[in-house]
Simulated scan of single mutants.
Amino acid sequence: MKKKYRVFKSARGEYEAVKIGWSWPAFLFTWVWALINGMWRIGLGVLVASVGVSMLFFAFSSSALDTVSASPVGFSIAVIFGINGNEWRENKMFGTGYRSRKIVTAKSADEAVATYLRGQQ
Rank of each mutant, 00 (worst) to 15 (best):
residue 1 M to Q: 13
residue 2 K to R: 15
residue 3 K to V: 09
residue 3 K to C: 11
residue 5 Y to D: 03
residue 6 R to V: 13
residue 7 V to Y: 01
residue 7 V to Q: 01
residue 8 F to Q: 04
residue 8 F to Y: 15
residue 11 A to T: 10
residue 11 A to Y: 07
residue 11 A to F: 05
residue 13 G to D: 10
residue 15 Y to F: 15
residue 15 Y to G: 09
residue 17 A to I: 08
residue 17 A to D: 05
residue 19 K to M: 13
residue 21 G to T: 04
residue 21 G to R: 06
residue 23 S to L: 07
residue 24 W to D: 00
residue 24 W to I: 09
residue 25 P to Y: 08
residue 25 P to I: 07
residue 27 F to K: 04
residue 27 F to D: 04
residue 28 L to I: 05
residue 29 F to M: 11
residue 29 F to H: 06
residue 30 T to F: 04
residue 31 W to I: 00
residue 31 W to P: 04
residue 33 W to S: 03
residue 34 A to Y: 02
residue 34 A to W: 00
residue 36 I to G: 02
residue 36 I to T: 08
residue 38 G to H: 10
residue 41 R to V: 14
residue 41 R to G: 14
residue 41 R to Y: 09
residue 43 G to Y: 10
residue 45 G to L: 06
residue 46 V to K: 01
residue 47 L to R: 06
residue 47 L to A: 14
residue 48 V to R: 09
residue 49 A to Y: 07
residue 50 S to W: 06
residue 51 V to Y: 08
residue 52 G to V: 05
residue 53 V to L: 15
residue 54 S to E: 07
residue 55 M to L: 15
residue 55 M to I: 14
residue 55 M to N: 09
residue 55 M to S: 12
residue 55 M to Q: 13
residue 55 M to F: 13
residue 56 L to H: 00
residue 56 L to D: 00
residue 57 F to R: 01
residue 57 F to Q: 01
residue 58 F to C: 03
residue 59 A to C: 04
residue 59 A to P: 01
residue 63 S to V: 08
residue 63 S to P: 06
residue 64 A to S: 15
residue 66 D to P: 02
residue 66 D to H: 12
residue 66 D to M: 12
residue 66 D to W: 14
residue 68 V to S: 10
residue 69 S to V: 03
residue 69 S to R: 06
residue 71 S to W: 15
residue 72 P to E: 06
residue 72 P to D: 05
residue 73 V to F: 15
residue 74 G to E: 04
residue 75 F to N: 00
residue 77 I to V: 15
residue 79 V to F: 12
residue 80 I to R: 05
residue 83 I to H: 05
residue 86 N to P: 01
residue 86 N to K: 07
residue 86 N to E: 05
residue 87 E to M: 09
residue 87 E to G: 04
residue 88 W to Y: 11
residue 91 N to L: 14
residue 93 M to C: 07
residue 95 G to T: 10
residue 96 T to R: 14
residue 96 T to A: 07
residue 103 I to L: 08
residue 103 I to V: 14
residue 103 I to E: 11
residue 104 V to L: 07
residue 104 V to D: 02
residue 106 A to S: 12
residue 106 A to V: 12
residue 108 S to A: 06
residue 109 A to F: 06
residue 109 A to C: 06
residue 114 A to M: 08
residue 114 A to S: 13
residue 117 L to Y: 07
residue 117 L to V: 11
residue 117 L to H: 02
residue 118 R to S: 11
residue 118 R to C: 03
residue 120 Q to N: 09
residue 121 Q to V: 14
